[in-house]
Design a protein around this nucleic acid. Structure first.
Lengths: 130, 130
DNA sequence: CCTTGAGATTCCAGTGACTGGAAGCCCTAT
DNA sequence: ATAGGGCTTCCAGTCACTGGAATCTCAAGG
């Protein structure tokens, strides 16, 4: 398979696949003409990566997860630990965003949004207590 | 004021303040010794930036917001528009994270996390239906 | 007067995970 | 023979800092 077909079938853009090769996540063989020659296992790996990235795992986590996936002696506890840590990070981000969201939506609601300069959003940013 | 004091009073690290000067967000004067000489208005601006960044506004949004803050002829509608757009972006990110969170927490719950290799998390990433 | 240490300066490089673009090779079809 | 599409590499840019090195300035102590 050439990179175009793999990109289509894995849903990962060619540029990204080349980048993944650069950083050693996949190691496709080469044809005589210099083109990357992907096997089914490469495609499989890339699809794995696509799903892991879609769940928000970092590239380094993905590298580790791929390693565990290919390690028949893994312990599921190792995988679970990574996932739990990531889950905690996601929870933290959600909490942060919700805190921002809360403040911001209050401010938006309190702003007239008309043609006058008076604006509670700017007042708040300037440090004036509501 | 030297950069250290401004950093302390604004809560923004010296490195970041220098960076903000680089990109033209603040323009402190200079003392004879080459040190940056901040006035109260500079401190005020930096505090404004700190709060805007804490609400997740991009640097470019911050630049615009600062401009509007200093423009006596602004219309609050301009400010509100920026804030609403940002709020929408935040909502989108939250939704994304919550979707990840949901999938991930299901997977984590279904994984034994013991010393055996069998792992539903890896199975899912490998594309095997639950 | 000299030294020491803290705090200031500039500049360069790296972060994460790609993405865009340019220049050029390869292959197939007309 | 040529046109096109796909492939190759390499370099640069994104966003918002952050770390580190080398150098300078200043105030205090011996």
């Amino acid at each position: 398979m050439n990179i175009g077909e793999v990109a289509e079938r894995s849903g990962i853009p060619p540029k990204t696949i080349r980048y993944y090769e650069d950083i050693g996540l996949v190691r496709p063989q080469r044809s005589d003409n210099g083109y990357r020659a992907f096997r089914e296992t490469d495609l499989h790996k890339l699809a794995f990566l696509g799903r892991a990235r879609a769940l928000g795992f970092s590239i380094e986590d993905c590298r580790t997860l791929l390693g565990l996936y290919e390690d028949e002696n893994r312990e599921s506890a190792q995988v679970k630990a990574i996932a739990e840590e990531h889950l905690a990070a996601i929870d933290e981000k959600i909490a942060q965003l919700q805190s921002m969201r809360s403040t911001l939506s209050h401010l938006v609601r309190s702003c007239h949004g008309d043609d006058l300069p008076d604006c509670p959003i700017l007042s708040d940013l300037a440090g004036n207590p509501a």
